[in-house]
Computed example of a mutant assay.
Amino acid sequence: MLRLTISAAGLAMAAVVAFAPAATADDGWGGADCGQVPVAGCDVSAGGGGGHNGGAVHLPGTGGDDDSAVGPDYSGCRWDKVDDYSEPGQPTTGGGWYLLTCLPDFQDGPFWVADAAPAPVSPRVLAETARNRLSLPRPSILASPAQNQLVNLPTWLWVDRGAWVPVSVTASVPGVSVTATARPTAVTWSMGDGTTVTCNGPGDPLLGGDPRAASPTCGHTFRRASERYPVTATIHWSVSWAGAGTGGTFPELTTSTTTAFRVVEIQALGAR
């Protein structure tokens, strides 16, 4: 029985055992498509002429002749692990012995199939995984006055402080851990009247003082009345990652909320 040691380097794709179409009914080997494999694959072609003992098993990329075989059409193949098989001088760990069986009556092996080491996961890939798991809060829109806004009276704008905190997620595999962190950097306000306001912070509430004073951090003054101004607050998040002795950045993320402001006019205020 022919035996072959299969290295992990040759196990890159799903196994296909390919035999040439039938030429004569008496040459021994046949065609088969093996879809069940115990490992991460290999291409195997069998050489023949004169039956099994005259053939060879060849794994592309591991050397050997690329012989073509002829024979009856086999309907399928499978790999069967042999748990109680061993050979002097052959490894006993890091893989296993397998028989190649093709219907109706072809079998070869056992073959030693080395365990393929898992491909290393790069820190960047882990960072992308962590970034995709970030759950960033949407802003709650707050304003003063709390109800109707007034023409020519400054509106103070801010988002709730709970949405203005860094958010981090860590992704890990054995031996490697990477953390992605999103930090709020600015809020863009689309005021619904054709103007946009960018604030480099969450803004501040009006706590006493002159209601005619403009917000020092984030605000807007409406010049025309409207029953419904659609107002959108968008938080911009910078995203960085660090781990495994390296790090980097991702394009910014955003979260948004939209509401409606009613703006009324009080003539006594006049234009400022």
Rank of each mutant, 00 (worst) to 15 (best):
N200P: 06
A171T: 03
M191I: 02
G51A: 04
G245M: 05
D160Y: 04
A114W: 08
V125P: 04
G109Q: 02
P230N: 14
N132D: 11
A182V: 06
L59Y: 12
W156R: 11
V113E: 01
P123A: 08
R223S: 12
G245C: 14
Q107F: 08
P166G: 06
R224H: 03
T232A: 12
T255M: 11
G270Q: 08
A130P: 00
G96R: 05
V187N: 10
Q149S: 12
T217A: 13
D67Y: 01
D108K: 06
G95A: 04
P91D: 05
Q107M: 15
T101G: 12
A56L: 03
G49P: 06
S240W: 10
L4W: 08
H58W: 11
M191K: 07
A9P: 06
S140R: 05
T179D: 01
H52S: 14
R212H: 05
S215L: 06
T62V: 13
S238Y: 04
K81W: 03
G41S: 03
T179W: 08
D80G: 00
G194T: 09
A130Q: 06
P88A: 13
T196Q: 02
A244S: 07
V57G: 00
S140P: 13
A69Y: 03
P118D: 06
C102H: 01
P72V: 05
G247V: 01
S68T: 06
M13P: 15
G41A: 03
V197I: 08
D73W: 07
A146T: 05
F250K: 12
A117L: 14
P38H: 12
R212F: 14
G51K: 10
W156E: 09
F19A: 12
A20E: 15
C199H: 02
G54T: 09
L157K: 11
C218T: 09
S226N: 15
G31Q: 15
C42D: 11
A119S: 15
G28C: 14
S45A: 03
P145T: 05
